[in-house]
Simulated scan of single mutants.
Amino acid sequence: MFPAARTGFASHGLSAWVLAGTLLLAGCQTDPTNETFRVDRAQGSEQNIASLSSVIAANPNDPEGYNVRGSAYGRAGEFRRALSDFNMAIQLNPRFYQAYANRALVQRNMGDQAQALQDYNAALQLNPRYDVAFIGRGNLYRQAGQLDRAFADFNQAIENDTTDPRAYHNRGLIYQSRNQHAQAIEDFSTAISLSSTSPEPYNGRGISYLAMGDDDNAFSDFNTAINLNGNLAESWANQALVYERRKEFQKAIRSYSHALKLDPKYEPARAGLARVKAAS
């Protein structure tokens, strides 16, 4: 259940710069701990929750009602209430594997990574083909630096014929971290085909295009990311990097400066702006 689990993308966790002629790649700054709740906030509105509460009051022994309301609480950022609802859903149906995975999302957002991992494992014991749990567990492994385990989980979700774009996007991030950019581009492209309105895979693919010296396609992807969501500092800094490589320094300055307006703490934009000002 938990539709939020299928909407967000993980952070790239890389950095994108040209230093001493060597390309180091800049990554997405999307907070991976909150990615799974970045959906239509109306689904977590007071009105929607009130409606779900009425359903639960009429059917207090139906675990599905608690699971759905827990999802709404999660999207509203009310994690303790969400946790309580998922606990109740599991109490009513101990084999409710979706509720285990949903509870893991909440625990992940609350910083309890060990308990989140335990719940993802429980969901997969109950349903060994559950792609949401493989992807969620893969993200936990990836954040912990266990890239081989993360890769195995994303790969398993893909082998199970998932249509969740995050599996491809996140596997692409690992390919990218291993400098396997052709494979990364292929995975980011598949993620885009499954979810063309998310900026993250465009940024990811653009970074790999840059690594392969294809500045034109990289520039196109970064511009698409900006058009989809103009509030990501990463996208503007990536665009600025292409301007910098083209020696269009005034345009690079504008893009780096805009990135810093969006996120004054975004170090790649700060360093890039200083570097371009010195060069111009």
Score class of each variant (00 low, 15 high):
Ala76Trp: 04
Gly74Phe: 08
Thr224Leu: 09
Tyr175Met: 01
Phe9Ile: 02
Pro165Tyr: 02
Asn87Glu: 13
Asn67Cys: 13
His169Lys: 02
Leu228Trp: 06
Ser193Val: 06
Ser53Gln: 09
Arg75Ile: 10
Ala4Cys: 13
Arg80Met: 12
Met110Asp: 10
Thr163Pro: 02
Tyr266Val: 05
Tyr120Phe: 13
Ser255Pro: 01
Arg205Leu: 02
Phe249His: 07
Leu194Glu: 06
Ala72Leu: 04
Ala50Asn: 10
Ala82Glu: 07
Pro3Lys: 12
Ala269Leu: 10
Asp164Val: 04
Ser280Trp: 07
Val55Thr: 12
Arg108Glu: 07
Phe188Asp: 02
Gln146Asn: 15
Pro264Arg: 13
Ala278Ser: 15
Ala76Asn: 09
Asp85Phe: 09
Thr33Tyr: 11
Val132Met: 02
Glu35Asn: 08
Pro199Trp: 09
Gln98Ile: 02
Lys265Ser: 15
Phe96Thr: 03
Lys277Gly: 07
Arg275Lys: 15
Ala20Gly: 12
Arg245Pro: 00
Arg166Pro: 00
Arg275Met: 10
Leu124Arg: 04
Arg166Thr: 04
Asn160Ile: 07
Ala114His: 03
Tyr266Cys: 10
Val68Thr: 14
Asn223Ile: 00
Met88Tyr: 14
Asp164Arg: 05
Met212Thr: 14
Phe9Val: 03
Ser280Met: 14
Gly13Met: 07
Asn93Thr: 11
Asp153Cys: 05
Pro128Leu: 12
Leu232Trp: 13
Tyr256Met: 06
Ala278Cys: 08
Asp148Pro: 04
